[in-house]
Design a protein around this nucleic acid. Structure first.
Lengths: 229, 229
DNA sequence: CTAAGTTGATAGTATTACTATTATATTTGC
DNA sequence: GCAAATATAATAGTAATACTATCAACTTAG
């Protein structure tokens, strides 16, 4: 399975780049180092000039891959959500029981990842940090509707709707499957953030995790028991 | 009550401004117009220079009130959360039944506001729009821990912890009161945003609202019925 | 009436977010 | 092995941002 995953090439919406960064050394270096630098500096302080200096390349060369840093962020987050969906599909495809399936889905969407592929270009752990802190900035802007039309959020939406199907499978009568799943996906990021910076606002920490919270939440919402055999 | 509320002066943490904007004409104009402009342009496109031009004043004069636009955003959002807490306290203080109390709290925290005070400086409706789109940006940055220590998020935390108390009053045995409330407060903003820009990811829209979702959520989590008499 | 405080106007700096141009490598196709 | 195409590097330049500093003008309080 590990090998299977490492062989998967994750495709990201073409509008997000000018030139596919996964087809050249420089492109892959842009991905690798931008993740490290955005994690380190935060998105606002991160610039293409600084990135160029880090990778011993030139600002203008980076602009040939990405129109601007916002598009790069969209690329990285789309990559993240697509990767999560792959994981979800692989991890659940051979589970028969739909409750067990949903349980697995919750785990995958709420847990912090380890580096789950052998991909050496993209550091999954740092990428997850970026998604926690920066993803909401990618859609909280005035061009969100245009960008949504361009399909830049397709990976995120697809992932949510896939889990919505699982929820419906478990409880057809539940009124808010979309709210519940979209709440969980954004909420899990938020709870991880609170656990790090606003400890007084969450029970999540060393003994309890967002996964525990959302499993409990889902089981009561859908009137199911994840501990049943 | 309306008069009582309009007489309330909302105090915001002193570190957020260099000079209290509520003590001069220019200061109040900064508040009034910045809300309109941030709502219109989005926070990134909003600048003190443009604001100065709008209110017929000078960039440098605005800098005498706020160190930078980030501090202004923190001021505005702190003002918003403080105002919400006032509303919550006034609306629940004469309710005996703790379930009814919690129900009221959910309504206040998840509904879109009308202009609930006579305050002519601050447009509550626009301010709420700003909170929906921009609040998460205010804490998603590298100085969040310092700013948290300075008390810049005190209003937000106080509000959450007040509702956490209500949850505990209703169900002492529930494991995740803080998660539940912090999830709701961020989640309600998120659901309103989805309803506007990602309709496929939420049931919230014309017939169902975030309030409906979270009332349903809380009632199942805490095993209570908001429709009981 | 004077002193203190408030505002306005102007100027200046470093940085950002690009675009354009040209030179130099490197790859590839034949 | 060479020409052509492509990729990268280097440099320069622009408009805008996010400030800081200075000084003059006006307002207000004692």
């Amino acid at each position: 399975m590990q090998q299977l995953l490492s062989a998967v090439k994750i495709n990201v919406s073409e509008g997000l780049y000018l030139k596919d960064p996964d087809t050249s050394d420089l492109g892959r270096q842009i991905l690798t180092k931008s993740i490290v630098m955005i994690d380190e500096l935060g998105f606002e302080m991160f610039t293409f000039k600084k990135l160029g200096q880090e990778i011993g390349s030139n600002e203008s060369s980076i602009y040939r891959y990405f129109e601007n840093k916002h598009k790069l962020l969209l690329y990285l987050t789309a990559y993240y959500w697509t990767g999560l969906e792959y994981r979800l599909v692989f991890a659940t495809h051979n589970i028969e029981n739909s409750i067990k399936k949903l349980e697995k889905a919750i785990e995958i969407l709420t847990e912090l990842p380890v580096n789950f592929t052998n991909n050496t270009t993209i550091n999954q752990v740092l990428l997850r940090n970026i998604v926690i802190s920066e993803f909401s900035k990618s859609y909280h802007n005035k061009s969100v509707d245009t960008e949504n039309n361009e399909g830049y959020y397709a990976a995120y939406k697809k992932l949510i709707l896939r889990v919505v199907e699982l929820v419906i499978e478990v409880d057809k009568s539940y009124l808010f499957p979309k709210c519940l799943v979209s709440d969980m996906l954004a909420g899990a990021l938020h709870q991880h953030f609170l656990a790090e910076h606003f400890k007084s606002l969450t029970e999540c920490g060393t003994s309890l995790s967002p996964t525990d919270f959302y499993k409990n939440l889902f089981s009561k919402q859908l009137n199911i028991d994840f501990n049943d055999k």
